[in-house]
Design a protein around this nucleic acid. Sequence first.
DNA 1: ATTCATACTTGACACTGTCTAGTAGAAAAC
DNA 2: GTTTTCTACTAGACAGTGTCAAGTATGAAT
Lengths: 192, 192
Amino acid sequence: MASTKSESLRRTVLDAAVAISAASGPDAISMREVAREAGVSHQAPYHHFTDRSGIFAAICEEGFRQLSESLLAPRPSIDSNMCEAYVHFALQNPGHFRVMMRNDLCQLADYPSARFEADRAFDILVEEVKSLLGEGADSEVVKTQTAYMWSVGHGLATLLLDGPLELKLEGIDDMNAFIHQVSRTAVASIRK
Amino acid sequence: MASTKSESLRRTVLDAAVAISAASGPDAISMREVAREAGVSHQAPYHHFTDRSGIFAAICEEGFRQLSESLLAPRPSIDSNMCEAYVHFALQNPGHFRVMMRNDLCQLADYPSARFEADRAFDILVEEVKSLLGEGADSEVVKTQTAYMWSVGHGLATLLLDGPLELKLEGIDDMNAFIHQVSRTAVASIRK
DNA sequence: ATTCATACTTGACACTGTCTAGTAGAAAAC
DNA sequence: GTTTTCTACTAGACAGTGTCAAGTATGAAT
């Protein structure tokens, strides 16, 4: 059994990193700042993460696992789709999401367990597209439509979170309704 | 008339920054590195840019101007659309694009001339959506569909450039054809 | 001839990631 | 029951960073 104290430091460091990412973006995550926030020496985090990108990888792993859960969770309404769930996950977990979608921060290829969780989330999306297209769908079409659906969700999420879209669409009264509309447009064009 | 030498340093610094962004991402852009690359002291760039984010703002301004040109340029084929043009711009100008879409790097609100160019590019997109929807389109619908089209282009571009999509879709033979297919799906669902 | 702005250089400061070398304490081996 | 080993740290150093402050060479304006 691992020491309780050490495991709690790992958790504390991770939480601090996610909070910083949510508040100021992943670039603001610093080894020394998370150590300071955890009340330990500047080298303590290195015992739980190989280096700075190790923290990013851990955030990815956790984030993709949570994303999978969100995508599989029961939808709030009958015409709410997976694209919408993706966008809401991003907006509700900005600290994780910003890190997950920056593969310059964490090279998933180097972190098998993080990669595994990312693959799992992607597979859930592929299955959804397959079920929308029906049984006998061509594999090329599945590929194209999967990329398409991910692009809509991902594009909308990143533009709302960090992009200049917010500036241009400041006149939106009901953000949830807006996301719902865009998501519906996307899924409708697949179903056809 | 401004001194030739100084103007050329500004240009040199900007080119170096864009090259670094294309090769290693915007975070790898450092004041001292671009100065080194330009063969000047580490403080020389400060005479042309207020600080590091000033360089990002300059890259944004230039990038959005070039994006507008690309969006308005004659299309290579009759069924090539603006979404496709957007993705191709991103893939052909990764150094600029990566900076343009990270508003944690450059706060457009603080740099009016960069903001102007960004607005202009966005307006071009809005006009395209209006012309796809026809004359009497409701302004709410225009807003939704503009966000939708930008999301597809932006999502596909960022996923291909820096996201994990590349990993999952490694079996794509003809990338241009793939981008064409996804873009067609997007615009087709607007036209309707 | 003097003033003044431009386009730099040099030096310093606080901050960063990370390498190296320790150390307190608990468990295991003998 | 002493010694060894492992875990989870601490402490110090180094090269790198952005940027503030101060100095300098050069050319134009007065």
